[in-house]
């Protein structure tokens, strides 16, 4: 087939181009613009080069937020991935209960982030919250507004509650695509339950699992609304994660220059880690015989 050359076709791309420009390119350029300049108001800017970047790289505040963020993401992934796989493996394969489980499991995913924060904020209160009150009446010290450990546990449990479903749904889809013959063959070969998981289910799930882990990494690394509503970053700075810290700097202190440098580096870290994740996991997939 001959392709016709028609340069006018570029105009068809124009709407999307404009949309992307307004939604992504222009805001990003603004951030870059701020990150290399300083201003004292009145729309007067002065060039400062990479000073802001240098300042942020050496700022202890950013290091601490990054540390907290890394810890949270690690904990969340370590809990949600195995837990999600476990639930997916134990869900009914077909029939009424399969649909029922799917709906119940999908429910948390439909709730907006800040609502999730509010739910848990109230749930954990000592005076009116079911969880907080129950724990208090059992004599357990639990106060997410004052105790660091309580705050962390609440945030982790909240995220597990909100997002394990995503991993469950993706793994479940992966499991459903395995033909019955594989299980029959494994049975004939007298494979143990662990072997079935290790040699049939896990390999067949690996593709979707990679996507699930990547999504969970990115989302948890950029978590904002839930901890913000629940703890506001406290007690002290103990749950001030990267995005909360960034917003404090940008909107609380109105330090637009450093905040822009901060957000650009934040963006690059997410991009870099996602890339490393993806490369490592796909290469594991392609690696020769085990």
């Amino acid at each position: 087939m001959n392709k016709t050359v028609n340069q006018k076709a570029w105009f068809l791309v124009l709407p999307v181009f404009l949309l992307v420009a307004f939604s992504a390119v222009i805001p990003l350029m603004t951030v870059i613009n701020y990150s290399v300049q300083d201003t004292f108001g009145n729309n007067v800017f002065s060039w400062v080069g990479l000073d802001w970047f240098e300042e942020i790289i050496h700022s202890q505040r950013m290091h601490e937020s990054l540390g907290r963020q890394a810890m949270l993401t690690t904990i969340i992934l370590l809990i949600e991935v195995p837990f999600g796989i476990f639930i997916a493996l134990n869900m009914p394969k077909k029939g009424f209960w399969a649909s029922f489980c799917l709906v119940v499991i999908a429910l948390p995913l439909l709730i907006p982030w800040n609502v999730v924060g509010t739910i848990w904020q109230i749930f954990g209160r000592k005076d009116i919250g079911l969880l907080g009150h129950t724990l208090a009446s059992m004599g357990i010290e639990y106060n997410y507004a004052q105790d660091v450990l309580s705050a962390w546990i609440t945030i982790v449990v909240m995220d597990v509650w909100h997002w394990t479903s995503l991993i469950v749904l993706l793994c479940y889809a992966g499991l459903q695509s395995i033909p019955d013959a594989y299980y029959q063959a494994a049975k004939i070969d007298q494979a143990s339950r662990w072997s079935v998981f290790r040699y049939i289910e896990l390999p067949k799930m690996s593709g979707v699992l990679l996507i699930a882990i990547l999504l969970r990494f990115m989302d948890s690394f950029m978590i904002y609304s839930e901890p913000f509503v629940l703890t506001g970053g406290g007690p002290g700075n103990s749950t001030t994660f990267l995005s909360i810290d960034l917003v404090n700097m940008a909107l609380g202190q109105f330090d637009l220059g450093p905040a822009s440098a901060y957000s650009l580096m934040y963006f690059l870290v997410v991009l870099l880690v996602s890339w490393v994740f993806f490369t490592v996991m796909t290469s594991i997939d392609k690696k020769g015989a085990v």
């Binding site: 033909p179 013959a181 594989y182 029959q184 063959a185 049975k187 004939i188 007298q190 040699y199 049939i200 390999p203 067949k204 015989a289 085990v290």
Partner: peptide, 21 residues
């Protein structure tokens, strides 16, 4: 059951353990 009968079966679609040699 299948195991007790000591039967081997080859299915319509090839069933191999992908990650193994």
């Amino acid at each position: 059951d299948t195991v007790k009968r000591n039967i081997a079966q080859v299915f319509q679609f090839p069933v191999v353990y992908d990650t193994m040699s």
